[in-house]
Design a protein around this nucleic acid. Structure first.
Lengths: 334, 334
DNA sequence: TGACGTCGTCGAAACGTTTCGATACGAATT
DNA sequence: AATTCGTATCGAAACGTTTCGACGACGTCA
């Protein structure tokens, strides 16, 4: 920039003003300056600017599993919107590990990101400090964390799960199994609650033996499912609380020599492209993944753009998920 | 840091030396300084450091489709390794659009990332300038770009496709269709070449009508597949050059009232978890996605770590893909 | 005992911006 | 003609580090 100033025969301050439009500059000088910029091949140094302004035009995005299609489309939406507003996205993945998450949050904070969007793997001092510090806006996605008062966008897990299990009950199933996720996560708890509600609604007694627990991951899902399937009086329908355990469930069914939906009905959380093309076509709870990303980024942008919005009380947006009934949950007519 | 210096009663330079170990500091002072750091709650400002040192400890990662499981596991591997070496990852997604890619490359360059890993959607002046500038190391993944002399890690697409098509031919198919990707991409060209080679090897005449073209995307794949299936003398087997067109292909088969593998055999590029659990279980060419990420990051780290490696001639690593034969490509015995 | 390294510490410059207050100048107002 | 005002420009300080050269103290060797 100093070279540009020299080449154009003006002061540093004027060049800065011309580049950023932060102060009036006469047309003549503007012309000279832009010519000089091209001549010198000047590119503004974002680091220096960040140091001075205290903002990096970068947001930190922290997800639990970048390999999961659910997060993937959400990330995509966030990125798209962020870039359109001139923000870069620094991506971190906790692999559902709270310690990794802490490390990455520190990394992001060190890099002075302007804001955070995080799908937390669990409450940590770092996350709490971030939120309570109030210096950097934080938007939670997918998972709420207890006692953390900040913006968030999640779905109505209770209702979504209730709908799905209700659907199974309506099809005549009385022994409905559940493969639940980690109960330390709000999603895990809420989906469990939805299951209980649906059972109660249908007048089915809750039976602890019918709920298997899988931390996230297809292999865990497999084990939990295998256990349910080996029960003497095994369930006639199973709901899996996320897509990975859904995969595990399907594998377990296959390995047990059972057929879906003939021998056992299946539904699971999280829709994906393939669910609709291979067999059995899977009944799923489709989350509005795109909308989650967009909403989260919009909330963040509001806080980022004008200082007054910084002080707004936390807003939590709850979106609705949609039950997509396909073959896996309905026994074929014979 | 100035506060720390004041609190510890030492100079700024000494604090810096103590923090970074860049110069000897007596044990006594070290103690005082660290105590002061805790007292003051000092956190090093990465931006200021970057400005001074000219490095950001951040790499730019540019992929074509973040929604695609292929890229997703590669990204994951890159991230993991990057973080372990203290690098942050700035993720951009071009959506297979060269213009978007240009924009994002500029964004990354402005942010002064220390290195790039890019799956390019096509040659652009920005990418070329980056590579030829030689200031920032670039490693290409998945796709080579013509005339760009830089590190790269790709797979042997010719061999992989040849193997897959050979497998179809060996099963007795003589009319083997191809759904090819964009020929502007090295992957598209190479896979096409593999197809030709396999045909020739099997003594099958090449028939232009049997190759459909799909830019990436499931819908394109669907259209291309539908066209092939509506041929009077339609192919008895089809190979799809990527996972998305594979999905489209399966949908098209279903909509045409055909069954796979009974009526038509299918194989496609890119393996994914689900391929092995739903029916028909898909025959795929499994890329070593994890290894691609690891290799790419290793190449980049070498260039990043020591200055002498900067001058090394470009290295391109070619990994092997693996054909996973499952149900979709073999007609069941009757 | 004097010259000479070595070790530990420090002051100050530098990285490339932004921004504040000062200044210059012509036009508008009295 | 003197005052005021707005506009355009500039000089210089500041952001928070790193790093280079200088410097004093101390031990070692001739």
């Amino acid at each position: 920039m100093v070279d540009v100033a020299k080449a154009a025969g003006v002061s540093l301050a004027t060049v800065s003003a011309a580049v950023n439009g932060s102060a009036p500059v006469s047309a003549a000088l503007k012309g000279r300056i832009h010519k000089a910029i091209r001549q010198v091949g000047y590119k503004t140094n974002a680091i220096a600017r960040s140091l001075k302004t205290g903002t990096t035009s970068t947001i930190g995005l922290m997800v639990a599993d970048i390999t999961n299609p659910f997060f993937t489309t959400t990330i995509h939406a966030i990125q798209e919107l962020a870039h359109r507003h001139g923000y870069g996205v620094m991506l971190c993945c906790s692999d559902e590990d709270a310690d990794k998450e802490r490390m990455h949050l520190r990394l992001l904070a060190d890099r002075m990101v302007d804001g955070f969007i995080v799908a937390s793997a669990g409450e940590t001092p770092e996350l709490r400090a971030l939120v309570e510090g109030g210096r950097t806006p934080v938007v939670l996605i997918d998972r709420l964390v207890d006692g953390l008062e900040t913006d968030a966008v999640v779905i109505d897990n209770v209702a979504a799960t209730r709908d799905a299990v209700r659907h199974l009950a309506a099809a005549g199933h009385r022994r409905i199994g559940l493969i639940t996720g980690r109960r330390t996560l709000s999603t895990g708890r809420e989906r469990y609650e939805g299951y209980r509600q649906a059972l109660e609604e249908a007048g089915i007694a809750f039976e602890p033996a019918l709920v298997g627990s899988a931390r996230f991951g297809a292999d865990d899902g497999y084990k939990a499912a295998a256990k349910l399937l080996s029960l003497a009086d095994r369930p006639t329908a199973i709901f899996a609380c996320n897509n990975l355990s859904g995969i595990g469930l399907m594998r377990a069914i296959h390995d047990a020599g059972l057929r879906c939906p003939d021998d056992i009905a299946v539904a699971c959380f999280d829709d994906f492209d393939w669910a609709n093309v291979f067999h059995p076509r899977l009944t799923t709870v489709a989350q509005p993944t795109q909308a989650i990303g967009v909403q989260a980024m919009l909330l963040l942008l509001e806080r980022l753009k004008d200082a007054t919005a910084r002080a707004l009380p936390p807003r939590v947006v709850r979106l609705k998920a949609e039950l997509r009934v396909r073959d896996s949950s309905v026994r074929p007519a014979r």
